[in-house]
Design a binder for these strands. Structure first.
Lengths: 336, 336
DNA sequence: TTGAAAGCGCTAACAT
DNA sequence: ATGTTAGCGCTTTCAA
């Protein structure tokens, strides 16, 4: 299947007996072209099924009009929704989406960033697994803006970010748990070197402190946001001689794992142990027990990230970093 | 944040006192370059943090090394997995992914295809909502291959496809239902003008016929693959004076809706009515009841689609169309 | 209002 | 083994 010859500006120009630049102007609707010739040109364009070569245009204009998105796992419904939001906003503004999955792998992430650089993306939306300061600097040095989501770099205020107020979300959720009467509360945290993991842990601590409740170290386990670690952490907790009555769980996958571990022990939620979690958004509405959850506004995060990115790209001077913080959406359940 | 000057081939060449072509050859490791100068060049490349401009390269080589993917809804875990598979295979082969969401909208799909054309993608993986024969022809005429997944065009054998054997999957699933003792069986089908919807319906018919069971038209409802239609169809069925004892449901969202409708009526699955479905793959393992399901091998479909695409792109002559058919994966449940 | 021509950054003949 | 040069298809000064 050899590439057939495609019609280009030059062909149209020759056919019509005008110059390429005139055809170009007519098509892009810029510069002055007489009504008459414009119509003649546009007609020929349609007739010939002319398709502009956007890579040539990108090269010439030094702008590929594309947004790179790197997430750790597109299969995670949170990220899928983020992408959906970004794609939808970007499309309206004429941007296309270059997608990469890092598989939670720092090397893959660095490679993906390199790819984005080479493809000359106009901007990048990055859910980083961390430790790519070098590549991040490289983006800055060539002037390609990055908007961070989910896990954000530690040097706050330096970067554009669109996130949930994780600390407060956790504080609220733990507060609700306490107000329900639970006193002996544990937590399965995410990695404490990732912002979302750490902030949710801090929110939990804040709520406990505010209510004068002690935090028992053996009731706090650090997971890695994956299902397996949720299972393991919950098993550890259930194996203690003295168990917490309720556990806060830092993300969806760990929550599923933890709930399964509880069931596997023959215990019941919330009778034996109560749980609440983050992002256990349930499209099926059939997960049982329905897990009380603070859901991030995923699609909105995607939209806003694209919006911040695009406005950053068209920003003339040095604007201060934008740190957008979206409200989580609480959804009650019968898991507590 | 103005674009800073980036270093290009010419800069490197001047710094090193060699020609651009030599630098190019050294970098792409093609053509002869003396060991010595190559090392000097590669060293300078590293030092200067040189990043090749891939859009220039794409223009020159007339190949963007990118795969377009258009799906109807990236938020559907089936498509998310397809994308993951395609991305992962493509990355290994040096291809990047240009993603578009059509939102099950024919117009958006056509626009996305136009975008892919303009971006000069090397090939396209398409989960079509249908009726874009014109655009499909346009791809063919410029020689950009398409691999169809999920919903495939009616003119069989004409196109490369990677699909599940939907007809047989449905036949098997219905057969299992029958063997469990159910006789009065209904179905909530997908759109019958989409291949996956139609084929699953045909498989159901085949199984019923093979076992000498009648198909009662009022027990068969055509949905649109969305949750709402699952609810509505199941409500209709439950409202009949005589209900089926079991219902086959053509996809995941409709199944969730249908199960919710059953519950809303105060009825129990499978005691009052049994169900089995497609693609109700459950990462949480907490959906209750666990729905017996034929899951498509989504990630593999993505990988294979990318593989077929890439081999098609490098195929010299006219190879016959590839129609890859993958086996579904049955997962039992307690919904029947 | 239109055309001629330069050039975006790179690769690949072709020449040396 | 290296350099020269001609484009890839487009946009955009600049001139007419």
């Amino acid at each position: 299947m050899g590439r057939t010859k495609t019609v280009k500006l030059k062909d149209l120009a020759m056919d019509l007996g005008v110059s390429v630049s005139t055809v170009s102007r007519a098509i892009s609707n810029s510069g002055r072209v007489s009504r008459e010739t414009r119509e003649r040109i546009l007609c020929a364009v349609r007739e010939a099924n002319y398709t502009p070569n956007d890579v040539a245009r990108s090269l010439r204009k030094q702008n590929a009009m594309s947004i790179g998105i790197i997430v750790t796992d597109i299969t995670n419904s949170f990220f899928a929704s983020v992408i959906k939001g970004a794609q939808s906003y970007g499309r309206d503004k004429g941007y296309s989406i270059l997608l990469s999955n890092s598989d939670e792998n720092e090397l893959f992430e660095a490679e993906a960033m390199q790819l984005m650089l080479e493809k000359q993306v106009s901007g990048l939306i990055l859910a980083s697994v961390g430790n790519n300061a070098g590549k991040i600097r490289q983006f800055r040095s060539v002037g390609i803006p990055i908007v961070f989501i989910d896990n954000i770099p530690s040097s706050q205020g330096q970067y554009d970010t669109v996130t949930t107020d994780n600390r407060n979300a956790a504080r609220l959720l733990a507060g609700m748990m306490i107000r329900k009467g639970y006193r002996n509360i544990g937590m399965i945290t995410g990695p404490l070197n990732q912002s979302s993991g750490r902030q949710r842990y801090e929110g939990f601590l804040a709520a406990m402190t505010e209510h004068g409740l002690p935090v028992r170290p053996e009731w706090v386990r650090e997971g890695d946001f994956k299902m397996e670690s949720g299972i393991r952490c919950m098993e550890d907790i259930l194996g203690l001689s003295e168990c917490p009555r309720a556990v806060l769980i830092s993300n969806n996958y760990m929550a599923y794992g933890a709930v399964r571990a509880v069931k596997a022990e023959g215990k019941t939620i919330p009778k034996d142990i109560a749980v609440a979690a983050f992002d256990t958004d349930d499209v099926t509405a059939l997960v049982s027990p329905a897990i009380a959850t603070m859901n991030q506004a995923a699609e909105e995060i995607g939209e806003k990230a694209a919006e911040v990115l695009i406005s950053r790209m068209s920003a003339a001077g040095m604007k201060p970093a934008v740190n957008l913080i979206l409200e989580p959406v609480f959804r009650d359940g019968d898991s507590w």
